[in-house]
Simulated assay, not measured.
Amino acid sequence: MNPNYRNLALWAIIAVLLIALFNLFQTPQTRGASSDVPYSQFLQDVAAGRGKTGTISG
């Protein structure tokens, strides 16, 4: 393999990794299906048996 192509391939891999890392930290995506729900709606969902887990913050 030509050394110039090997060098170009190495820089291309580095560029792709940098872009992937930038996208990972720039737009964090939520893991799983989570959403903000008003407390009153949460209580109604739990009473109806639709709530499995919840995290209260703030």
Rank of each mutant, 00 (worst) to 15 (best):
A47R: 15
R31D: 04
D45L: 13
N2C: 06
Q41S: 09
N4G: 03
G49D: 08
S57R: 14
V46Q: 12
R6L: 08
Q29L: 03
L8W: 05
L17Y: 05
V16N: 02
Q41Y: 06
R6V: 07
L8H: 06
V37K: 12
A48H: 05
L24S: 03
N7S: 07
W11R: 14
S57A: 10
A15E: 02
G54W: 07
Y39S: 11
Q41L: 12
S34C: 04
Y39H: 11
P3T: 10
Y5E: 11
T30M: 10
W11C: 04
V16E: 02
G54D: 00
A20W: 03
G32S: 07
R50I: 00
D36F: 13
V46G: 05
S35C: 05
L21A: 10
R31S: 05
L17M: 15
Q26E: 01
T55K: 09
M1H: 06
A12Y: 00
G49P: 08
T55Y: 06
G49N: 06
D45W: 12
A20H: 01
L17D: 08
L21W: 03
Y5P: 02
N7F: 05
Y39A: 15
L18T: 09
L24V: 01
P28S: 05
G58T: 11
N4I: 07
A15Q: 03
L8C: 02
M1T: 06
G32K: 04
M1D: 10
T53G: 00
A47P: 01
Q44V: 07
R50G: 08
A12Q: 09
Y39M: 12
D45C: 04
D36S: 11
N7E: 10
G51C: 08
Y5C: 01
G58E: 12
V16G: 08
T27V: 06
A20F: 02
A47N: 14
T55I: 08
A48D: 14
S40R: 13
G49H: 07
D36V: 14
T27F: 03
G58W: 04
N7Q: 10
G32T: 08
Q29H: 04
R31Q: 12
L24P: 00
L43G: 02
S57G: 04
A48S: 13
S34Q: 14
F42A: 15
N7R: 11
M1E: 10
G49A: 03
T30I: 11
D36E: 15
Q41K: 13
G58K: 15
S40K: 14
L24M: 09
A9R: 14
L10C: 06
G49Q: 07
A48I: 03
N2S: 12
M1N: 05
S34V: 15
N2Y: 03
P3C: 01
A20Q: 05
S35N: 10
V46D: 11
Q41C: 03
T30D: 14
I56V: 14
G54Y: 11
I19C: 01
G32H: 06
A47D: 15
R31C: 00
G58N: 14
P3S: 08
A9Q: 13
K52Y: 08
K52L: 13
S34N: 07
P28K: 04
A48W: 02
V46S: 09
N4D: 11
L17V: 13
Q44G: 09
T27Y: 02
N4E: 12
T55R: 09
R6Q: 11
Q44T: 12
N23D: 00
Q44W: 01
